[in-house]
Amino acid sequence: MEKRNLTCIGCPMGCQITVTMDNGEILDVTGNTCPIGDHYARQEVTKPERTVTSTVVVLDGDRPRISVKTKGNIPKSEIFACLEEINKVRVHAPIAIGDVIIPNVCGTGIDVVATRAAGVA
């Protein structure tokens, strides 16, 4: 039996939730005061995901870097691998918002896309 303690992000209450698990199976969710907390806790212990945002270097652009994001959530465990890929990238201007910078980052099926445009210097 394993117990995981979480803080719910559903609202400013920030309920302290305890999830009791056995071999990856959720036995019990306690501490939440509404269904949002139950849903959040189940998602968080079985399939935690995050959107990752960072920047990449722009070559010959009108700005030194542009901001990027994963177009959807990626597994939490892949965050730093994803950042490593992002840090390797050098892009050439021009870039438009939404341009794919890294397709299928770390095999997650999610693209890293530009969130900022860059013109040619």
């Binding site: 959107t51 901001s67 994001k69 918002i97 969130t115």
Partner: peptide, 19 residues
């Protein structure tokens, strides 16, 4: 503010600051 979480009320989607 390159992180996401902007625009949920206005555009019904999560945008980054620059977007």
């Amino acid at each position: 503010c390159i992180h996401n979480g902007f625009g949920l009320h206005t555009f019904k989607e999560e945008l980054t600051g620059p977007e």
